[in-house]
């Protein structure tokens, strides 16, 4: 019976994530607009944009290879697979044994490589520039994530996200400096991975400092829709990850009856809304940094993550 509930929860989770992704992006944009004193577009606008773009035939450059056509599907596939593994409203979904933090990092890397290669496919200067920067920034973001994972893995005893969420919800881990530092590191990585301010600006094109948008300049039609959707899924994935690990309250435990899911769902929506609000506020308050300041930003995140792990060794050694 648990298996059936696990399958149902998983299916609900995937449907939820798939539908929430464009909505979340829309909400963040709307909140930002309100904070900056504009009226802002309807939060449903990104969904409509996607559906419109999907109906359009893409225009490919004459020398584009099959990479340009295959890469958006790979990127979306990797993002969906990653998002399917991060628990949202309930634990003990059927993919729970699969939901490993390092694997999620690997799936994100798969999507990143697909995007970088698509950017290089036509041989335009912007695409190569964006690909080079994206891969270079990831070179510092990934160790920061792994070091944060080290802290989580020591506290929870595993890198399995489901088990980490359970340990953080049920185990009396207390407030710890290490967790705070890991949170800082993971937030910095999330900002960089999602091309948000101050690392990159998600709402500009054709700026010399851009990273993410530079790689998909040649994409159009349904390919562009897929790229945009992959980016939205990635944002949802990261926010869900942060809320699953650091805000574990409200989540329905494994094997809980469906009426507990409603509570979990409400908590999840509230948590995601709060994170979206925080993101919008942060982005409105802060200026984008120079592109060669990004390594310092990510390097600081990496070192703080490391510091968190070191303090954890101290406190585990003390008790």
């Amino acid at each position: 019976m648990a298996l059936v509930w696990g399958i149902i929860a998983q299916a609900l989770h995937i449907a939820l994530i798939l539908a929430a992704a464009p909505l979340l992006t829309g909400v963040v944009r709307w909140l930002k607009a309100r904070m900056m004193g504009r009226r802002g577009a309807d939060p449903l606008q990104p969904t409509r944009d996607l559906l419109k773009l999907l109906r359009k035939t893409p225009v490919l450059a004459e020398n584009a290879s099959a990479v340009s056509r295959a890469a958006p599907y790979i990127a979306v596939g990797a993002a969906v697979a990653g998002a399917a593994l991060v628990p949202s409203f309930a634990r003990g979904m059927v993919f729970a044994p699969l939901s490993d933090l390092i694997l999620v990092a690997g799936l994100l890397a798969l999507g990143r490589v697909a995007m970088a290669l698509a950017g290089m496919d036509v041989g335009t200067p912007f695409g190569g520039l964006g690909a080079a920067r994206e891969m270079s920034f990831a070179a510092l973001a990934e160790p920061a994530l792994v070091v944060a994972a080290l802290t989580l893995a020591i506290l929870a005893g595993t890198t399995n996200l489901d088990a980490i969420a359970a340990a953080f919800r049920d185990g009396g881990l207390g407030l710890r400096v290490s967790l705070g530092l890991a949170l800082v590191a993971m937030v910095a990585v999330a900002i960089a991975e999602n091309a948000r301010i101050p690392v990159d600006n998600p709402s500009t094109h054709l700026e010399l400092t851009m990273v993410h948008e530079a790689m998909i300049l040649e994409a159009s039609g349904r390919h562009l829709a897929l790229w945009e959707y992959a980016a939205m899924l990635r944002l949802t994935l990261w926010l869900a990850l942060l809320s699953a690990v650091f805000l574990p309250f409200g989540q329905a435990p494994a094997g809980a009856a469906p009426h507990v899911w409603v509570v979990g769902l409400a908590a999840w929506v509230a948590k995601m809304g709060a994170l979206a609000l925080a993101l919008a506020g942060f982005e409105s308050a802060i200026a984008k940094m120079r592109v060669f300041r990004v390594p310092e930003f990510l390097g600081a995140a990496l070192l703080l993550g490391l510091l968190g792990a070191i303090y954890l060794f101290v406190s585990t050694g003390l008790t």
Binding site: A109, V113, M120, A138, P143, V147, F313
Partner: peptide, 29 residues
């Protein structure tokens, strides 16, 4: 802990190097 960070750094750097290798040799003009 430092070695863990360096290993992850090396893995991500290797990904960048491989994208550079394949992208520059096989993609583009």
């Amino acid at each position: 802990a430092a070695a863990t960070a360096l290993t992850a750094l090396a893995a991500a750097l290797a990904a960048a190097a491989m994208v550079r290798f394949w992208g520059l040799v096989f993609l583009g003009r």
